[in-house]
Nucleic acid binder design. Structure first.
Length: 125
DNA sequence: AGCTTGACCGACC
DNA sequence: TGGTCGGCCAAGC
């Protein structure tokens, strides 16, 4: 091939790297402590780049390997199609939940939301 | 190049 | 409490 002007890394084909932004999103997701959650918007804001929708896309496509249940919607609604799986995790991690009027469970964002702070010492309510 | 869609968000009513 | 609307940022078509 004469046209080698386009530089493509050899290993890129065998080991396709995820977009840098996606890796950042996944990194943040892994950093969320058990029992806590971050909203898509929070993650985007924390990264200082992109928006909630972009984070949502990244999670939808590549969020499988990471604790995806800790990245949620701001209204606390469980991820459609994964409610069962998510609830399992929440119960296991003692994530603050709330029972809606219809009996369905949602996250209690007021308590479960994590702002990215390192830790929150002894709960002094 | 323009329009639609999406694991969204906040403001309003 | 719940439905609508406009805004937002990329990706697909």
């Amino acid at each position: 091939m004469e046209r080698m002007s386009q530089q493509r890394t050899p290993d890129a084909a065998a080991f396709p790297e995820l977009p840098a932004y996606v890796e950042r999103v996944l990194d943040v997701a892994e950093r969320i402590p058990p029992g806590r959650v971050m909203t898509y918007g929070d993650v985007a804001e924390w990264l200082g780049e992109g928006g909630p929708r972009q984070v949502g896309r990244a999670m939808a496509l590549y969020g499988g390997p990471v604790p995806w249940w800790r990245v949620v919607r701001s209204d606390g609604v469980l991820l459609p199609g994964h409610e069962r799986r998510a609830l399992e995790r929440y119960r296991m991690e003692a994530t603050p939940l709330r029972t809606a009027a219809d009996g369905s469970q949602r996250l209690d964002m007021r308590r479960a939301r994590w702002d990215g702070a390192p830790a929150e010492g002894p709960t002094h309510t």
